[in-house]
């Protein structure tokens, strides 16, 4: 299977997991990684910088209609929903929050599933609400690979548990297993 993109959703308790994953992505990783993480909507700066400290690849908060490039990590900006559209571009939106969230993990996952279909890996990490459950289900329905962080390892297990209830996930992985998986694709 040759994947074309990875999308990761996380909320409460996911920051350290994400940081560890980003620190261990091989330098030559040649597909884009999309991060949709719940964040304070009025704090626009600092998050990208905090994630960049240990990341092996550059982290970018995309502008609307910015081109998606391989080997880059894209973080959904504060107070916008982030879509990945056909034609390899981002589209941002200020539609109402979904699951009380803007950016909403469900919406980002849904658009990524539509665009990348079976060439997508979707990963849901620790979090305190059910955002991402329907999104991961859509990844699976589109033929992509659905992964959740092992709830036993999660600081807050609501999000991966909700995703597991919504769809038959392919893998339940610890952070280290997620890293090993990403290194092999």
């Amino acid at each position: 299977m040759s994947y074309k993109a990875v999308i990761i959703g996380g909320s409460a308790g996911s920051f350290q997991v994400i940081t560890k994953i980003l620190a261990n992505i091989p330098a030559g990783f040649d597909i884009p990684i999309f991060l949709c993480l719940h964040r304070l909507k009025h704090v626009r700066t600092g998050f990208e910088e905090a994630l960049s400290i240990k990341s092996t690849l550059p982290i970018i908060e995309p502008y609307d209609k910015q081109h998606i490039r391989p080997g880059k990590i894209y973080l959904a900006p504060a107070n916008y929903h982030m879509y990945m559209e056909l034609g390899n571009t981002f589209a941002l939106s200020t539609e109402p929050p979904v699951n009380h969230s803007r950016p909403s993990i469900d919406l980002s996952f849904f658009s990524a599933a539509y665009t990348y279909k079976n060439k997508l890996v979707g990963i849901i990490l620790s979090g305190a609400n059910k955002d991402g459950a329907l999104g991961l289900k859509q990844v699976k329905l589109a033929g992509g690979t659905a992964i959740v962080q092992d709830p036993n390892e999660c600081q807050v297990k609501t999000m991966p548990t909700a995703a597991m209830a919504a769809t038959d996930v392919d893998y339940i992985f610890t952070t280290d297993q997620i890293i090993s998986f990403l290194k092999k694709i």
């Binding site: 879509y83 559209e85 589209a91 939106s93 919406l107």
Partner: peptide, 9 residues
């Protein structure tokens, strides 16, 4: 229109 957002609208 931008596709995804307009579909949702």
């Amino acid at each position: 229109k931008s596709f995804t957002a307009f579909v949702r609208s």
